[in-house]
Design a protein around this nucleic acid. Structure first.
Lengths: 260, 260
DNA sequence: CGATTCCTTGAGGCATCTCAAGGCAAGTGG
DNA sequence: CCACTTGCCTTGAGATGCCTCAAGGAATCG
């Protein structure tokens, strides 16, 4: 649709140059079975036996600097990328140039699942802070899945899960007002941070108001106003990117308000 | 999330009762390789050799009456359903009871891909007219995929394609105004009908204004007004559900209007 | 310290929603 | 065959929630 920059996908083996930045950190390789993310990442739910062939792939690890793209929309698709640390945003660009943030990815989440359909990346993934990723060669993964039932089902489940997530986001964009969108967003971030061992009550947003606005289908000023309003109502404390959820239940009740 | 009716998935073998309706038409069975939809449906892109095991599954065919659900959100997931004829809408219900139409499905399209993640259907599929479907036992399909590389990749591609489609819908819901949404919708329907051998210029909408509105994130009155406005501008002729596209290029230009 | 990016807040406008009324088409029952 | 019901669509008028435009402040960086 909107292929502009036709860069290659990021290869884990040798550092390559993209635009002005060079992949600095030397790629290291490590097995899934000893990864601290194994419970929430790709191998989640696999038996030790099923995980073993994954180890054979020895996914390359890379660091990504804030603002840098892991892949661009239109790039040839070779790798899925698992987030090891840091936060990413996924952006799609429409033919008329407008952009939409379709999601934010955190540790253990997989980026690039939208690329399998066409063989080219369907979105751009940008690091919102310095981050680390695993490059997963999709061809090899697909090979393994041929003989590994658990792995095959896993990939299917991950894709299906992404579809379910996007259904929810469509419902948000289609039916919710500003208050509901913002509290849904905050509660979602909170839940995911908690699942990763961080505080569910207090955290730093890694994305700008503009990113949040794009993701939620509203403009950045409205995001800002809504956050200020939540603060005044005693639901949370906000100071720029720092958020402390004061009244979790109150935030949750935002949704019931309109239907009563 | 919102499991209410806990009915079984529709089994192709013996007629079952759902609510007040009974599956009337006797299920027939037929191979994919002789199906008139084989080019645009599940087996699309498979070689003859790869398609052969699919034939072994002999998918059960069923008819579905207008207004009837093929499956409900929360139902145990056993089958994917391929549309043979007719049109369906997919609906998700949020905890507060609000509903969102997440898509419309036409001949050759697969319903239920969002169910693989959880083992339960993530949406409800409702026939918008009398229709026919194929029931595809997902467990068997998954078995086959273990030994059939092409089939495995096919299922992955189909899921990925659904993710891409939903990215587009999120962009629509997140960035477009009423005019853009409605023309995007009409052009999408037109393109899909054309791909199925129907006229791209003139067609019957099978869904209500409320369905369209839910899908597009606007209310039914605004859909109606936008269509009337398009008619006044000479872009199309509308009379209730009958639509004739008069100025296809003019509709397309709706998108550029706001950015140029 | 200046430049830049990001965030906040205000004021006014407008696109869309809400509420309401009426018309059309199809189905139903007498 | 007609009266009645029902569901769907259209149109109007007024309300409003969010956007747009604008200005200024706060944090970050070179």
């Amino acid at each position: 649709m909107q292929v502009e920059t036709q860069t290659d996908a990021v290869a884990p083996a040798q550092p390559i140059t993209r635009g002005e930045t060079t992949w600095s950190a030397p790629p290291s390789k490590a097995p899934c079975s000893s990864c601290h993310l194994r419970e929430i990442c790709l191998p989640s739910g696999l038996t030790a036996a099923e995980m073993q062939p994954l180890d054979g792939l020895l996914f390359g690890r890379r660091s990504v600097k804030e603002g840098q793209a892991v892949f661009h929309e239109g790039d040839v698709f070779q790798y899925l990328y698992a987030v090891r640390s840091g936060t990413f945003k996924s952006v799609v660009t429409m033919t008329n140039g407008r952009e939409q943030v379709t999601g934010f990815d955190m540790a253990g989440e997989l980026m690039g699942l939208d690329s399998v359909a066409t063989g080219r990346h369907g979105s751009t993934a940008i690091a919102l802070e310095d981050a680390d990723i695993c490059s997963i060669p999709y061809g090899h993964l697909s090979d393994l899945a041929c003989t590994n039932r658990g792995l095959q089902q896993l990939v299917s489940r991950l894709m299906s899960h992404e579809i379910v997530r996007e259904h929810g986001q469509m419902a948000l964009l289609g039916t919710m007002n500003a208050d509901e969108r913002v509290s849904a967003f905050l509660l979602n971030i909170s839940r995911r941070l908690k699942a990763r061992g961080y505080s569910a009550r207090e955290f730093h947003l890694r994305m700008t108001r503009a990113d949040i606005g794009s993701f939620l289908g509203m403009n950045l000023e409205t995001v800002s106003r809504t956050l200020s309003d939540f603060q005044q109502r005693g639901l949370l404390e906000v100071r720029r990117k720092h958020v402390r959820i004061v009244d979790h239940d109150g935030l949750t009740r935002t949704f019931e308000a309109r239907v009563g």
